[in-house]
Design a protein around this nucleic acid. Sequence first.
RNA 1: GGGGGUGUAGCUCAGUUGGUUAGAGCGAUCGCCUGUCACGCGAUAGGUCGAGGGUUCGAGUCCCUUCACUCCCGCCA
Length: 595
Amino acid sequence: MNNKYRTHNCNELRRENVGKNVILSGWINKKRDHGNLLFIDLRDNYGITQCIIDKENPNFRELEKIQLETVVTIQGSVVNRSKETINKEIETGEIEVGIEKYKVIGSCKELPLPVFSDQEYSEEIRLKYRFLDLRRKKIHENIILRSKVISFIRSEMYKSGFLEFQTPILTSSSPEGARDFLVPSRLNPGKFFALPQAPQQFKQLIMVSGFDRYFQIAPCFRDEDARADRSPGEFYQLDLEMSFVEQEDVFNVVEKLLVNTFKEFSNKKLLFKKFPRISYSDAMLKYGSDKPDLRNPLIISDITEIFLRDDVSFEIFKKLIKSGSMVRCIVTKKTKDKPRSFFDNIDKWAKDQGASGLAYFTIEKEKEISAKGPVGKFFSKEALKKIMKLTGAEIGDSLFLACSNQKELEKITSLARDKIAKDLNLINDDIFAFCWVVDYPMFEKDEITKKIKFSHNPFSMPQGDIEKIKFENPLDILAYQYDIVCNGIELSSGAIRNHIPELMYKLFSVAGYSKIDVDQKFSGMINALSYGAPPHGGIAPGIDRIVMLLANEKNIREVTMFPMNQNAEDLMMNAPSEVSDIQLKELNIILKNKK
RNA sequence: GGGGGUGUAGCUCAGUUGGUUAGAGCGAUCGCCUGUCACGCGAUAGGUCGAGGGUUCGAGUCCCUUCACUCCCGCCA
């Protein structure tokens, strides 16, 4: 590279370039003005070079006054720095550039936010001036990391025999799943496209088309509310699908990819090289969640049976159990000497979460085994021995108990597991703990409508002998449906697909869809499956979340170049925005509450 | 749709029990300073305390309403 803007970038010059006349361009990162001597840190994408000018130079007075973040071209010669003035913090720290000439090529107004600063500042201002925010070191590096991760994944996928294909962005609305983003069709008045929530049907059609292994870094659009780890509107998945495979084949490909990627881009250790498989029902019992953080050693146990004993007099729980509640507990190791406040804080915290609190006691032994704590007196020593057998608790350990219906229990024990582990500092932040959650139920009961609905992907293959599936007990049907979870974050879900049309109709009918409904809503898919479809399956790991984990960020906006805010607005581009009457008219749209 | 947190100078924040003229650091402007790398020193400008209403002799501070940002629940096949 050698043009009128630069002969080198700002991270290139070294001691061996001393004496050379060079041209550099970049942003004024920082000035240090000594009155008759001025230091300027010039920054570009690659790094920083210190430039220097003194009052002998006729440009001195102007450069003294130059605004930070102005873009300038500097011409000068590379000078050796004396030993005492070397800056080890930057790669160009052994040299500096003595400014001979300079030119402003992009002037800068007074900054609405500092670029050179480690200070946190408000999301609103960051998103409005994202182009300035992105100049800052941390996020600039995150975005570069994202690019490298995606590039690495692409090449790994090609190495594993996958081909990348694009699928349509304007497609049809689907009745299942998240809210769609709709796009009105001008040529078909009254009709709408939908942006794809995922290229689900397309990737299956690609398998039916005989391409065997497909992947895509696919944009996905879902009109749902945001979270810290969930962008509103759009996000990216590594969408992949394979023909003639079983569940384990998909696992092998993805495990290899994730292990390689996480080894390449992070120094954190992988807790498991072979990711453990945990069934959905086990996960819900032991962790209270289908996205367990396996860095957390705490395990939830069900001890409902204890409260059926005559030598346990915990009457409140006994009464609740008679009306269908269960009791589950979390054991904390060697906590007998923790102060009362430790236990009471957790109980209080649980109440703040809307639960009725967490009862607790500590198992002790002087002559006999006994339980210490507000509810300890309700348990006989035999009951305590049984509890220890059920939960693995030992002398000196404590138990936190919750009693409620299954759903509430899962919720509070899951939250409590996180909370207690944090309080006891049990989570090692220096590891990645992956796992597969498998054997999801095909259907679930809608809490409100009490109707049977698909619990995940309606195109998943049910487990077991297809001839023997008991459709009359739909809640017992498991699917070849799986999630991959890392450190408590759901990275993706996938499935072996149902490629048999007759079975598809049956499953949909359980969820209340007639054959006609299915033919209408999924015409492309169901039609294709009737013309010789291979068995196939796949998965779609979330790219944003993978990068988030690798960059050690807690918020997905830190790895997204131009994110929207929580209200799904782009503060920089002013999107969404109102459109002209002419545009609306062309689209045959009349707004109901036009101001 | 619901709950929590935050909102004071361009930026980040402090502001006691309600009490005189609302402060600091960074940034800006002006001046001094030839080896800094978060340079240093001095001065100046900069405020509808998110907005509206109420209580009070008096509100940044208390109450109500509302707006914005954010975190969480719902939602996310």
